[in-house]
Each structure stands twice: as C-alpha cells, then as structure tokens.
C-alpha cells in the first residue's frame, strides 16, 4: 500500500506505533555494497520475518536495525530517535529495550549456561542474587534446559545452545527482539518447538519481533509481515497470504524453492 493514499490521521497512528524506521539505508564494507537505499518501518507488537537467499545481507540488515552496524548512508530511527549521533547514554537506554539471538548464538563460553542468563541481569539490573537465580531457573525451564544449568555451552548440543541463546536474549524481558535464524541447523520438530516458544514468549511480553529464517514453514508460522532481502534491497511481500501470492518472480521462486528462475544468477555470483 502506498503511503500517499493514507489519510493524515492514519499516518499519525502508524507513526506513533512505528519503533523502527529506516530510510534510504545503505551499508557497504569498503568497496562492497551490501544494502542500498532500503526503506523499512516496523510497528510495535508486530512480527516481521526477513527471508532471502544466503549472502544477500539479511544478517547485515538485522544488525544494522539493531544499531550494531553503522549505515554508510540513509537514516535509522529507533524509538523515534535518530541513531546516528545519538549520545551513548541514550543509545544504551534504547539497547536496554532490545534483545538479540545471534546466528552463532554468541554464548559466553567462559560462563556456564546459568551464568550466561545471569550475566545480563547482573550487568543491567539491581536484582539480588536470589532473584537472579529465580529468573535464571524460570528461563531455563521455559526453554527446557534446566538440567544443563551448570554445564558450559560447548558441553551442550546445537539445539540446546539455540534455546539458551533465546533464553539469554529474553532474560531482560526486552520489548524488541531480533532473532537471526533461530531454527538454523535444527530438526523440524525442534524448529517448530522453538518457534512456538518464541511466539509464546512474545505474547507474554507483548514484544516486537524481527526474525530471519529461510524455512518458509517457520516463516508462515510466526510472521505478521514478510520481507525478502534481494539484490541489495528489500521487497516487502506483505502478510503470509500476500507473500504466497506475490507476483515478483524472485519471491515466487524463493518461497517455492524452485531451481529455475531469476535467483539462479544471484547464486552464481555467490
């Protein structure tokens, strides 16, 4: 839907709920441009799923939206504040509202599973050790790995590491959560359980979720809106039904997993 046909009242309502707004966002690493002139907004409480072929810049976009990568051009607004040039204490206030599950989980390998969840609580809150341990137990139980509390990340399986990463990302009850491929490398049953867990915790915290996945079943399971990162840009494909019927041949080929189509030339360039 074009923004031009919306009434001012509707625009105002949308703007009030928009917590992330990117305009003409470009990201480049030296001479290599990853994203070019990306426009995107994310509303409070919605689940936006990013899909797209490997190497197209999904993780870069996610990290840029989370404020971890400085865009080379364009503007990024988080919670109605321009990220570039924002004082550090203001940035920390915004980061305190956010949580992230990283692609490689980013678990602190020198800390046990329980300590990994306790770490953000010790750093960012004034809670007593007893309260922290209660929260740690609650989240470990929520993700089903309470038995691994005293084990180190390298001593548990990939699926358990993923679940621990989710528990750590949620420990501070963030309003905005980024998930970078939460089901990568997991079997279909565990994947489904993880997505159910994400949705359950989202509902509980009334959180906004931006997630990357290439598993279309999981994308359909959790998305309010889907967008495909392709050729340095973003194709907003709409909700699940709209995505399934999308006319763009690249989107069509990707969601159907077909071998022939415009994406082949992208794969050859990888």
């Amino acid at each position: 839907m074009s923004e031009a046909i919306l009434s001012n009242e509707t625009k105002g309502l949308i703007n009030k709920n928009v917590i992330i707004e990117a305009k003409n966002l470009s990201v480049a690493f030296e001479a290599h441009t990853v994203l070019k002139n990306v426009d995107l907004f994310v509303e409070k409480g919605e689940t936006l799923v990013l899909i797209g072929p490997s190497g197209q810049g999904k993780t870069v976009l996610l990290k840029t939206l989370a404020g971890l990568i400085e865009p080379t051009a364009g503007t990024l607004s988080l919670y109605h504040k321009q990220w570039r040039g924002l004082p550090e204490n203001e940035k920390i206030k915004i980061l305190d509202k956010m949580g992230m599950l990283f692609q490689k989980n980013a678990l602190f390998d020198s800390l046990s599973c329980g300590e990994n969840i306790a770490f953000p609580l010790r750093e960012k809150t004034q809670k007593s050790e007893l309260e922290i341990q209660e929260i740690v137990d609650y989240f470990l139980e929520s993700v089903g790995i309470i038995h691994a509390k005293n084990l180190y990340p390298e001593e548990i399986s990939g699926g358990m590491q993923k679940r621990l990463g989710i528990a750590r990302a949620l420990a501070l009850m963030p309003e905005l959560i980024f998930y970078d491929d939460p089901t990568a490398g997991l079997d279909p049953i565990t994947s489904k359980k993880i997505i159910e867990l994400i949705l359950e915790l989202k509902k509980k915290n009334n959180a906004t979720v931006i997630a990357i996945t290439n598993d279309m079943n999981r994308a359909y399971q959790m998305a309010d809106r889907i967008a495909m990162v392709y050729q340095q840009n973003l194709i907003i494909t709409g909700n699940v039904e709209e995505t399934k019927k999308h006319s763009n041949p690249a989107v069509h080929q990707f969601i159907k997993g077909e071998l022939l189509g415009p994406l082949n030339s992208s794969f050859e360039n990888l």
Partner: peptide, 13 residues
Amino acid sequence: VTEQIDALRMLGI
C-alpha cells in the same frame, strides 16, 4: 568471530 562482542554491545556494554 563468535559474535560475543556484538552480544556485549547489544547489552549496552
């Protein structure tokens, strides 16, 4: 490499 530094930054550390 394992994104632990990004995780610290995400926590505002």
